[in-house]
Design a protein around this nucleic acid. Structure first.
Length: 376
DNA sequence: TTCCGAATAT
DNA sequence: AATATTCGGA
């Protein structure tokens, strides 16, 4: 008698709690709904959870709920399974890998442990708030965001902190901490693909095709890394976007982003050599066109270096600076260039090259381009 | 197909 | 100015 009463009581409690959860979940789903494009999986997840709870209420038993739910791979099969899903960052990290790619709250800074089981709701809303810091899909809002993300030239420390603090999550300004290991790389590319597809899915329904990506903000740290990598690869005009990306090992960085950045880098580098010629011997340094390529006139060393596949001083004369001809460059060229891209300086030494269909090297093209722009 | 570089758009 | 996207070629 008493037993059954307490059972009843128990059951009712559970039921009430379920209702509360459903309400909470629904409210959150409304919020997440705004971010549909960014968090499609999240939305799905919450929806599933809601359904599951509703089923439970109508079905009456706790038992067969979680095992049969569609998201079985994500749940633990325990009653708390679903709830666990909403504890954002447990380091258990076995479930929800996709979401973690997106959410990935900075573990170092956020280490005030989320293991706290109480205040689930609070946790959730806190978490949502933090998401909202970067996730503002509305075009008006995102414009605001862009502006606020313009790189402000303050102390590097401040920027670092800013980057780590607000943007360890994917979209605009994030960067990974240095210690990341190599296997992130594959994950990165995968997650990238997934993200792209997710975006496609959510936007494609509308028939809208071209959602512009979130602007990546090249923070100082990120840029520094970029430069380092560039150095390792032998300079901006020999490194390719892919190489750079791979070497940088920055999670989520795409070839396109690197490419874009590189393009500017090259342009500015070239412009500076034009506008700020080498102080020492620019007066006496004459350039001459060899096979459609500009080379310093009487520079044996340059010619030799070029012939050796090294890049020392560039084709346009002294490069702005710091692109040493070190490293795995040779290997890189033989490996990566075998497919015939003519980026390598190697070709510079060979006037015969100029007669091939693609006569210009990247630099020569750039030069022409620059001349063109100048005349416009 | 994938990558690249240049041009162009936002 | 900085970043993204498009385009054509290899």
């Amino acid at each position: 008698m008493i037993k059954s009463l307490s059972n009843m009581k128990n059951y009712n409690e559970k039921r009430v709690r379920c209702c509360e959860y459903i309400e909470a979940l629904e409210e959150e789903r409304r919020k997440i709904n705004v971010f549909q494009r960014e968090l499609p999986l999240c939305l799905e997840l919450v929806t599933q959870a809601i359904e599951t709870y509703k089923k439970e209420i109508s079905g009456g038993t706790m038992e067969n709920l979680f095992g049969q739910s569609e998201c079985s791979e994500q749940t633990t099969g325990e009653c708390g399974g679903i709830l666990d899903l909403f504890r954002p960052i447990k380091h258990s990290s076995t479930s929800l890998e996709e979401e973690e790619e997106e959410i990935d709250i900075d573990d170092e800074h956020e280490s005030n442990e989320t293991g706290i089981d109480l205040d689930d709701k609070n946790m959730k809303s806190e978490w949502l708030k933090s998401v909202q810091l970067w996730n503002q899909p509305d075009s008006a809002l995102s414009k605001k965001l862009e502006r606020s993300q313009q790189e402000s030239d303050t102390v590097v420390e401040a920027i670092k902190e800013n980057d780590n603090g607000t943007t360890s999550h994917q979209p605009p300004c994030y960067e990974t901490s240095n210690g990341k290991s190599a296997d992130d790389k594959s994950q990165a590319s995968i997650s990238c693909r997934q993200k792209k597809e997710a975006e496609k899915d959510s936007s494609g329904g509308n028939g809208r095709i071209g959602q512009r990506k979130h602007r990546r903000c090249w923070s100082h740290e990120l840029h520094r890394r970029f430069l380092n990598t560039l150095k390792q690869l032998g300079g901006p005009h020999v490194a390719t976007p892919k190489q750079i990306r791979e070497l940088m090992k920055v999670d989520g960085l795409t070839n396109d982003e690197v490419k874009s950045h590189l393009q500017v880098k090259i342009q500015t580098a070239y412009k500076t050599t034009q506008t700020i010629p080498n102080k020492r011997d620019s007066q006496t340094q004459h350039f001459v066109v060899v096979g459609g390529i500009w080379v310093p006139q009487a520079s044996h060393s340059t010619a030799n270096a070029a012939a050796a596949g090294k890049t020392t001083t560039g084709i346009y004369g002294p490069l702005p600076s710091e692109w040493p001809s070190q490293s795995n460059f040779g290997r890189t060229i033989s490996e990566e260039r075998s497919r015939g891209s003519n980026k390598g300086i190697i070709r510079c030494s060979s006037p015969a090259m100029s007669s091939s269909t693609r006569t210009k090297t990247k630099d020569a093209k750039l030069y022409n381009n620059f001349e063109k722009n100048k005349s416009l």
